Computed example of a mutant assay.
Amino acid sequence: MRLAKTIRSAALILFVASAPALPASAANVEQGRRLAGLYCAKCHAIDKVSPSPLVIAPPFRTLHQRYPVESLQEALAEGIVTGHPSMPVFRFEADQINDFLLFLKSLE
C-alpha cells in the first residue's frame, strides 16, 4: 500500500515536472499569432470574431470548447496529420509550439 502511494506520488511529480512552462508574454503571443497567420489563416479564423475561410475548419477561438488546447502540444511537435481533409501536414519547433499555444489560449 505504501509502495503504491509512493509510486503514484513519484509519477505525479514526474508528470508535473515534465510539463512545459508557458510564460505568457506579449511577444510570445504575437509570435504565435504570426505562426497562425502564416500556416493556418487560409482555412481557420484566427481572431475572436471572423468566420473561418474554409467552412469545415473550426475557428481557433472555439478550439478550447472541444478540448484543452495544451493537448495539441504533442501533435504540433510530431506533425498534425488529422483535422479537416485539406489540412496540410506541418510540424513546429518547441519554442513555436509554446508561442502558438499561448496565442490559442489568448483567444479563449
Rank of each mutant, 00 (worst) to 15 (best):
G79H: 04
M87C: 12
C43I: 11
L107H: 08
H44P: 09
G37R: 07
L76R: 00
A41F: 00
P85G: 08
L54G: 00
D47N: 08
A45T: 10
A17Q: 06
K48G: 15
H84F: 06
P23L: 07
A27E: 15
E93W: 02
E70A: 12
D95F: 05
A75N: 09
A17D: 10
A17N: 06
M1K: 01
L101T: 09
V81T: 15
S106N: 06
K5Y: 04
A77Q: 14
L12T: 09
F103I: 10
A21T: 13
A4Q: 09
A26C: 01
R61V: 07
L101R: 14
V29S: 03
V81W: 10
A57M: 02
A26V: 10
L38G: 01
S50I: 01
F100W: 09
E70I: 06
L12A: 09
I7S: 02
R34K: 15
I56W: 00
A36S: 03
L38Q: 03
P68R: 07
R8D: 04
L12F: 12
P68V: 09
G37V: 08
R91F: 03
E74I: 13
H44M: 10
E30H: 05
A17E: 04
P68K: 13
R33L: 15
L12C: 07
M87H: 10
P88I: 13
F15Q: 05
M1H: 02
A57W: 03
R33T: 11
I7D: 08
L107A: 12
G79P: 04
H84C: 01
E108D: 13
G83Y: 11
R2I: 14
P23K: 06
A75I: 01
A45M: 09
P20C: 11
S50C: 07
S106G: 04
V49E: 12
I46K: 04
S52E: 03
H64K: 15
T62A: 02
T6N: 02
S25D: 11
S18T: 15
S86D: 05
A41P: 04
V29R: 03
I7P: 00
A41V: 00
S86V: 01
L3K: 04
